[in-house]
Every structure is written in structure tokens, then in C-alpha cells.
Simulated scan of single mutants.
Amino acid sequence: MFPARLTALACLLLAGCASVVPSTAARLAALDPLTADPGAIEVVVILPEGLAVKPGSARLEFGATRGTETRKGSFVLEDRPVRTAVAGPEGSSARGFALTEADAERMRALQAEIAAWKREGKARGTLGLGLGGCGVGDGPAPDATGSVLIRMAEDGPFLPLIRDGKLADLLGAEVLAAIQPCEGAE
């Protein structure tokens, strides 16, 4: 049986567990990643001043594990206009991301493959987000914070997943200090 929960929203996100909004995590845990429409998944990242997303680095990771077997895929998230009002600290910027049409189709195919595969035994699903960051100007301040909103249904609301998480906690102090200057990032 495939647990009807998302076991990981990783890479950038769950390293800062203290900043995760429990009500959103609970709502995401109630979703079945095999039935979620990939074309409806949208993420808004609120970046602090001095931090940008490297072009082409945003990815959604989806998969399942059954015993020692794994089925997984990595899917491109493209920049999308942020169509909802989001508030952030002064100097922050909001970036929207969603799957490309081609990768939404690839993810649907993987969902179908995993659904057939899980009928043969217990499986555990994962859904993760990865973003490559780069510095603008002097880069982000050591105490900079960021937020992440997620929407899993086209007509659903954006839910706050991470609220004002300290980058040093989310990324780790070493990673934050090692952020390179942007080349062509907005």
C-alpha cells in the first residue's frame, strides 16, 4: 500500500523543520502523490535580498521505494509569473515555479507506473523540491530568511510550507557561505 502522504519535501525545504508550517505539512501528508495532478503543482519561493535562483536549476523529485526497489524521476520546474499576492520582507522577491508540460506528462507516466508497481507490494512515496541558489550583489545577509508556498490543485490556495525560515538553518551555514555570484540570474 502506498501511504497517502508526501514523505519528503526535501533539498531546500525540510532541513529547517522549525520553519515548516505544521498545518500545511499535515495537509500535504493527506495527499496521495499518485493522484495529484502534476500540471496543477505550483511553488512560490520568497527569496531574500541578495539571493536568486540559478536559471534551469529548479526541479521536482518524485518517486517511490518498495523494499530495495526504487522508481523515481526528476522533473524540470519552469519560471512562472506569480499570480497571487505574496508578502515578504523588504527587498525580497517572489518566484513562481511549475512543471513544464512535457515533464507534467512524464510525471503522469511515472505515477501510472508506480501505481501499477505498488499493487504488487507496499511502497513509500517521496516528493522533493530542489533549487540552485546564487548571490546577487553582496549575496544574502547572514540572518536572511526565505519562505515557500505550495499549491497542489489548480483551483486550490497557496499554502505556506516554510514561513520565514532562516537560510542558515534551511541550507546550512557552510552552504550559505559558499553561494557563488549569479551569472544571468534575475
Rank of each mutant, 00 (worst) to 15 (best):
P3K: 11
T7I: 08
T7F: 10
L12K: 08
L13S: 12
L14D: 15
L14W: 11
G16S: 14
G16P: 08
A18G: 15
S19K: 03
A26H: 06
L28I: 00
L28V: 00
L31V: 04
P33N: 01
T35C: 04
A36Y: 03
D37A: 15
E42Q: 11
E42H: 06
V43Y: 04
V45S: 06
V45D: 06
P48W: 09
P48C: 11
G50E: 03
G50I: 02
L51T: 05
L51M: 14
P55D: 15
P55W: 09
G56M: 12
S57Y: 01
R59F: 08
F62S: 08
F62M: 12
A64C: 13
A64R: 07
T65Q: 13
G67S: 10
T70W: 10
T70K: 14
R71V: 00
V76M: 07
V76C: 04
D79Y: 10
D79G: 09
V82P: 10
R83C: 07
T84D: 11
T84E: 13
A87E: 13
S92E: 11
A98K: 05
A98N: 04
L99D: 01
E101Q: 09
E101N: 08
E101L: 11
A102G: 05
R106W: 01
A109W: 07
A112L: 13
E113A: 12
E113M: 09
A115V: 03
A115W: 03
A116G: 14
W117D: 01
R119D: 15
E120G: 13
E120A: 15
R124P: 01
T126A: 12
G128A: 13
G128T: 07
L129E: 04
G130A: 14
G132H: 02
A141G: 06
A141L: 04
A144R: 00
G146Y: 03
L149I: 08
L149S: 08
I150N: 04
I150Y: 00
R151N: 02
M152C: 10
E154H: 05
P157L: 13
L159E: 15
G165V: 05
A168L: 04
A168G: 06
D169I: 05
D169H: 11
L170Y: 02
L170R: 00
L171N: 01
G172H: 05
G172E: 08
G172A: 09
A178N: 03
I179W: 03
I179H: 00
C182G: 00
A185T: 06
